[in-house]
């Protein structure tokens, strides 16, 4: 007979497997949907291919006029684009679910999910799982990655370190946006989030180190975007600092705690749309 911590461990393990089954079911449905609506996948692939094409055209036109821009060459900018798409791949895992869930929260339709035994955060993250954008982003990213490897020489260790930084940088910015989305518990309109997301999209296309000290400070400590694309690209350029590791760990812990706190407070404040 299991007592005390043994029983607690069993309870935790069954909870974890319950959540895992929930997420697996969501993704099975998403894959079935993907195969039913193949055209949508190709439309997404077209959209993202167009995006990267125009971004490259933008930089190509600039580099037609100059060989380097503040020390950045076309190879360095290629690395920047690589991490931009890495960001989109990671982000697209949760983006759809979070956007729709917080829309329900703003319109008062989230009550339905509070009745389930599942933790509301799981419903918020995986309410609507679509792997169409994830897969199409992944295809474009893999194409870019292979092109980069074939066109330029880079050491394996540099590549691994850069992607590790990029991955944790992505987690940081996802947590940051999650905290901002939690304002949906209090604000019924969040158009500012759309402009911030569009801004993120825009900022990620530029090396953030080619700005003045004010913006470098802002993107490091207030809007932690620099570790998503610019710092991994800087690592590929051959620049590295151990302070970056300390910063990423610190930022991750701080934002995770803040996200948990804001979500908890928001849920308490939440009023039913039918109330």
């Amino acid at each position: 007979m299991k007592v005390g911590w043994g029983k607690e461990m069993e309870k935790q393990q069954s909870k974890v497997s319950y959540y895992a089954k929930f997420v697996r079911r969501k993704y099975i449905v998403a894959v079935q949907w993907l195969f039913s609506y193949k055209i949508n996948f190709f439309l997404f692939l077209l959209a993202f291919s167009l995006e990267i094409s125009f971004t490259f055209l933008f930089w190509k036109i600039l580099f037609l006029n100059e060989n380097t821009l503040n020390g950045w060459t076309f190879k360095d900018v290629f690395g920047l684009m690589l991490f931009m798409y890495f960001f989109w791949v990671i982000r697209s895992i949760f983006e759809s679910g979070l956007r729709r869930s917080f829309r329900l929260i703003r319109t008062g339709g989230f009550d339905y999910f509070l009745l389930f035994p599942l933790h509301p955060l799981m419903n918020a993250l995986f309410y609507k799982v679509t792997i169409t954008s994830f897969l199409s982003n992944l295809c474009v990213f893999l194409f870019l990655f292979l092109s980069y490897l074939l066109s330029f020489s880079v050491s394996f260790s540099t590549l691994v370190i850069a992607f590790l930084f990029g991955f944790f940088g992505n987690i940081i910015i996802i947590l940051f946006f999650f905290i901002l989305r939690c304002f949906s518990f209090w604000l019924k309109e969040n158009k500012f989030l759309l402009i911030l997301e569009n801004g993120t999209h825009l900022f990620n296309k530029y090396p953030l180190t080619i700005t003045n000290k004010f913006f470098q400070f802002t993107y490091t400590f207030i809007f932690p975007l620099i570790f998503v694309v610019t710092i991994p690209a800087e690592i590929l350029r051959g620049n590295f600092s151990f302070v970056w590791i300390l910063y990423e760990i610190g930022m991750l812990i701080a934002l995770a705690l803040l996200a948990a706190f804001v979500w908890k407070k928001g849920l308490e404040h939440y009023e039913s749309g039918m109330g």
């Binding site: 609506y37 949508n40 439309l43 077209l46 959209a47 995006e51």
Partner: peptide, 10 residues
């Protein structure tokens, strides 16, 4: 189309 969003984005 179901995901007309992709057209819009393109």
């Amino acid at each position: 189309f179901d995901e007309a969003w992709a057209f819009g984005y393109a």
